[in-house]
Structure formats: structure tokens, C-alpha cells
């Protein structure tokens, strides 16, 4: 019993020291941005590697658009119309509310998020008509009509609409005081003047980056 005591103390002390050292961030490393040395590129082999990497970096840069494109930040509810790296126009928008809707009758569910990723303008419409989808009726506690003609509604989408696939549009809004908030069903709502500018600038095929 007595002979085990030193082992116990050594183990305890070692464990405590390990925890303290690691707890301080010394053991596994803690990096301050200011402490990082500049990368060395002195040797021949590193130069060759650097050339390869530079070529890869160039390839990567070539992906970035040089022409007109649209960037949409759904967290900040902002739309940026850009040409290359130059900002042409910034607009306050409303993007998806993230809410859920269930249709218990047909066991369907919708999540009203604005999709994220890289898209392109697929259609452009002046004075667009809204073809009300099923969820719009279910949200109002109504049954969706069977006849497509009964689904048309005018004036809801504003003066212009730019479709970017799967029924999603950049369009106008009747509720401009809610711009800057996440209130849409996934489409991107834009104020009248900004929408006009975006519609005039963007052509079919213009890239849209949504994050």
C-alpha cells in the first residue's frame, strides 16, 4: 500500500502538469496571427512548387466572373449588383423566412428558405403574373384550385421578375417596409427602383451567387 503512493503522486502530478500545459494552449499550439513567419521560397524545389501553386491559383481565379453578376447575402438581406470586383448597386432585400408549412391532407411539407449556391437568370418578365403554387393556398387555409387559370394573380410580384430556376424569382414586393427582413417564401424581394436597375442590367445567363 505504502509502495504505491509515489506512483500515485507521479501520475497525479504528471496529469495535472499535462492539463495545465495543454490548458494554456502551449502543448498543442495556440497561434497568434502576428506570430506567424512569412513563408520561405528560397530553394529551387520550393520555386517549382510555387510555380505549380501559382498556376492552380490562376485557374481558381479564372472561375470568378469578370462581367456583370449578382451576389445575394441572405443573412444581411442585401443584393449586390457587381461587374467584376466593382460594386454597381447595393439593394436591401427580403429573403426566405425559413418557416415550415405542412399539408396534412397530402402529407407534404415546405421549408421557405432561399436556395443557396450558384444560379443564373433563366427568365425575365415585365408585369409578371404570379401562378400561385399549392403552398400559397394551404397557407391561407384553402384548397388549391385544379384549374391553372384560377391560380393567376397580378400585381403581387411587382413590375419585373427574374427567374433563377425551380420557381424562384427576384421580384418586387407590396410590403416594402419589410425589406431587410426574412419574410419571403424563398424568392428574393427587391424594392421598385432597385428591381428596375437589376432588371435592366441583368441578361439571361447572368450569374447569381446566393449565400
Amino acid at each position: 500500500m505504502v509502495s504505491r503512493r509515489p506512483i500515485f503522486w507521479i501520475l497525479s502530478a504528471s496529469a495535472a502538469l499535462l492539463i495545465i500545459l495543454e490548458g494554456l494552449g502551449i502543448y498543442y499550439g495556440k497561434f497568434a496571427r502576428t506570430q506567424r513567419p512569412e513563408p520561405s521560397t528560397t530553394t529551387q524545389s520550393r520555386n517549382i512548387d510555387e510555380k505549380t501553386n501559382q498556376a492552380l491559383r490562376q485557374k481558381l481565379n479564372n472561375f470568378a466572373p469578370t462581367g456583370l453578376h449578382i451576389v445575394i447575402d441572405t443573412a444581411q438581406n442585401r443584393l449586390y449588383l457587381k461587374k467584376g470586383a466593382t460594386l454597381i448597386r447595393e439593394a436591401v432585400i427580403s429573403s426566405g423566412s425559413g418557416s415550415k408549412l405542412e399539408d396534412p391532407e397530402q402529407n407534404r411539407e415546405w421549408v421557405f428558405d432561399t436556395p443557396r449556391g450558384v444560379f443564373s437568370v433563366k427568365s425575365k418578365q415585365k408585369n409578371p403574373l404570379w401562378v400561385k403554387p399549392d403552398w400559397a393556398y394551404i397557407e391561407e387555409g384553402k384548397r388549391p384550385p385544379k384549374n391553372k387559370q384560377d391560380r393567376f394573380e397580378s400585381g403581387v410580384l411587382g413590375d419585373y421578375a427574374l427567374g433563377f430556376g425551380d420557381g424562384y424569382f427576384i421580384h418586387g414586393t407590396l410590403y416594402s417596409r419589410l425589406l431587410g427582413r426574412n419574410v419571403s417564401h424563398g424568392c428574393v424581394r427587391v424594392g421598385d427602383k432597385d428591381l428596375q436597375a437589376v432588371y435592366a442590367a441583368a441578361a439571361i445567363g447572368t450569374k447569381i451567387y446566393i449565400f
Binding site: K30, F31, A32, R33, L60, N61, N62, F63, A64, P65, V71, D73, G117, V118, K207, Y209, F211
Partner: peptide
């Protein structure tokens, strides 16, 4: 996205 930086967030401590 597609090689383009959409947003840059500065990190204060790493």
C-alpha cells in the same frame, strides 16, 4: 462559391 469570395470574416483569435 466558384472560386469567388462572397464574404470575408476576420478572425480575432485562433
Amino acid at each position: 462559391a466558384a472560386g469567388m469570395t462572397l464574404r470575408e470574416i476576420p478572425v480575432q483569435d485562433i
